[in-house]
Each structure stands twice: as structure tokens, then as C-alpha cells.
């Protein structure tokens, strides 16, 4: 998914200026790795393609000296373009995970370090889940019975389920790595490490 479609979708939902849109992008798709600066280049591109246009400017206020900020809204072509994207098939994303590769290619001496890396990632997953939980609190304040809120809950669930699956996999990986470490510790003390061939 490109930042272009994400930004266009947000502008269609509600017009806004660049900084607002960057904040909303972070709230909605924080885990997707979109850089805030990507919002501005996406807006430039969308404007060049006549998919968004200026809906006016917001002054910076008397106490500020910053330049007025352009508020963007979608053009009819932008809405059509977004609808076309919305209804087109989505490709299945590839799974290229650095940690998967490290585990599959690791050497025995790397195992203790990998265990700590896995543990660190478990904590990172939990941190992200706690962030999402804070966002859920804001959704709840909006009233949980409206369809728009339920759709946001459903979209959030996709990310929550991703981190859930991730943390579950990490737990399994760590358990196995710890068993391997313990087994190799015993092997190195009591007898030759021939059992490790199975790995």
C-alpha cells in the first residue's frame, strides 16, 4: 500500500493540512512505517495528478510567524481514483522477516544473543499492543455502537491480530531456542554435541 492512497483516503474522510494528515496517518497506520515526510510528497503528487486540491488556507494565528497552511480536499477525480483502488484486488504481501532469516541461519554461538533479541521483540510487540490499546480508548470515547467506529475497531483488530500472532510466534521461537541452548549446554558438559545435528 502506498502512502498516496492512504493520504487520499484520509483527505476524503476529512480535509486537512499536511501536519494534521501526518498525525492521522500515524494514528491509523502507525505500524506501516510511513514516514511523516511522506505525507507531503504524497500530497504534492496527488495535487499534480489533480486528485486533491486546495480548499483554502489556515492561518498560523497571531502569535505565530509560520506561513499559512494549505488545507487539502479531494477532487471528484480523486474520489473516483480512490474508489477504483478500493475495489481492485489486493496482492498477498511477501513475508520477509529479518529475524526469521537470522534464526534459520544462526550459529550455535549466536543462540544466547538471539534469545535476547527475541525477548526484546516480544517486549516491542507488547509495547505496540499497549499503544493500540490507548487508541482503542479514544475510539471508545466516540461511542462503540456506530458502524464507523466498528469499522475502525475491525481495522485495528487486523493490526492487533498481527502483533498477537507475532508475539505468539516469538514465544514459540524463544522456547525452542532456550531448549536448544540448555540441551547444548548439557551436551557440552556431559558428552559430545552430536544431538545438535537434528537442527
Amino acid at each position: 500500500m502506498s502512502a498516496k492512497h492512504a493520504v487520499l483516503g484520509l483527505v476524503i474522510e476529512r480535509p486537512g493540512y499536511g501536519y494534521q494528515l501526518a498525525q492521522r496517518l500515524e494514528e491509523r497506520f502507525g505500524a506501516s512505517g510511513f514516514a511523516p515526510s511522506g505525507v507531503y510528497s504524497a500530497l504534492d503528487q496527488l495535487a499534480r495528478d489533480d486528485l486533491v486540491r486546495s480548499a483554502g488556507e489556515m492561518g498560523a494565528g497571531p502569535a505565530r510567524r509560520a506561513a499559512p497552511r494549505t488545507i487539502y480536499e479531494a477532487t471528484p477525480e480523486g474520489v473516483d481514483h480512490f474508489e477504483h483502488w478500493m475495489l481492485a484486488s489486493s496482492p498477498t504481501p511477501p513475508l520477509r522477516d529479518d529475524l526469521h532469516m537470522k534464526i534459520s541461519l544462526c550459529r550455535p554461538r549466536n543462540v544466547p544473543r538471539l534469545i535476547d533479541m527475541v525477548y526484546g521483540q516480544e517486549l516491542a510487540c507488547l509495547g505496540r499492543l499497549r499503544d493500540l490499546n490507548r487508541l482503542a480508548e479514544e475510539d471508545r470515547a466516540g461511542g462503540s455502537r456506530e458502524w464507523s467506529i466498528l469499522m475502525r475497531v475491525l481495522a485495528r483488530d487486523a493490526e492487533v491480530a498481527f502483533w498477537n500472532a507475532r508475539i505468539e510466534w516469538l514465544q514459540s521461537a524463544r522456547e525452542l531456542l532456550e531448549q536448544l541452548r540448555d540441551e547444548t549446554d548439557r551436551s557440552s558438559v556431559g558428552r559430545p554435541a552430536g544431538r545438535l545435528r537434528a537442527c
Partner: peptide
Amino acid sequence: PREPAPQTNVIEFPSWE
């Protein structure tokens, strides 16, 4: 987070290597 493990382990595993 726990205390990180060292980057390398002193134990060697010749058969796996």
C-alpha cells in the same frame, strides 16, 4: 528487558558447526 547476553558464547558446538 533483561541484561543482554554477550554477542558470542564461549561454548563451542563442533558437530553443529
